[in-house]
Design a protein around this nucleic acid. Structure first.
Lengths: 146, 146
DNA sequence: CTTCCTGTAACTTGTTTGGTTACTACTATT
DNA sequence: AATAGTAGTAACCAAACAAGTTACAGGAAG
């Protein structure tokens, strides 16, 4: 199931806002970092704003992260972008007049939920601060090599 | 993205082969239970066969599950159908001349892998035998109500 | 040898994602 | 207040992909 890169791009965006906070944060500049279009960036920001993770002011290039980075987990970003979309989907339409088709949704739903909950627990453990810290560590490694 | 139901349908298929082992297991009959087309069923069986989970003989309606159900986990079915496709995708193309764009793949890849590993550990805990058992329990509940 | 079935390729359709264009509205500067 | 720059958002387009359909070659079994 090819998953969209919106979630990845949203984390990218938030990290960019933090690391480049002292630059002009236009959607064009952010788009150049993600290598996408400014409209896509603004669409992502719209979702993040609705979730209360950032605040923006129309007309100004000043999106601001609304909470300390340590209080924003990768899971909360996931919810902001993907809502309650499940990672694994159960076929919703099967033959009810069959032991399998008539009960498979009920049975699989629980197993899928367990798997997703396990994945979400991992995402909840990581904050944007961890991501930013790691980005800077990786950059320092690169700088040391050159 | 509309999430694929292939994985769900593959589990359905295997459970059907077990529960209805004493019936004529044509791809048409299986397709009627999944409410899809026979070609889709044969495509799924092709993947399951390549993964060694079932054996089939061309021309005969006799697909056979190749191992005891207790030895087939939901994870092995996932691998059979989806291969190594990740549940979460990292944007592969970002601006390398940027602290974020140049390092985000390295950083996110690890977090995503951790989350996926956690989900897979849950899927590995459940066998097809568990699924079949649960299907029969659910069916018994239905029968009791009517 | 006829019938039923599998295996697979090729094509079609519907959905989703991401990119593009275009427009309105807001902010700041002069 | 006029202007330049930017956000917000709708509408549309193109590419990717899943799943359904058609078609057909070939195996199995009576």
């Amino acid at each position: 199931m090819r998953v969209s890169t919106r979630y990845s791009d949203a984390i990218h965006l938030l990290a960019y806002l933090n690391i480049y906070a002292d630059t002009k944060l236009t959607s064009d500049a952010i788009a150049a970092s993600i290598e996408t279009s400014p409209v896509v960036v603004r669409r992502l920001m719209s979702k993040l704003r609705q979730a209360g993770l950032i605040t923006t002011t129309p007309g100004t290039a000043q999106p601001v992260i609304a909470k300390p980075l340590t209080q924003i987990s990768l899971l909360s970003v996931f919810y902001a972008i993907e809502g309650d979309k499940p990672l694994l989907a159960v076929d919703p339409k099967t033959n009810p007049d069959c032991i399998v088709g008539g009960n498979i949704q009920t049975v699989l739903k629980q197993y899928y939920q367990d798997a997703q909950t396990a994945a979400e627990a991992r995402l909840a453990k990581t904050s944007l601060q961890d991501v930013v810290d790691n980005l800077l560590v990786e950059q320092a490694k690169k700088d040391a090599r050159s």
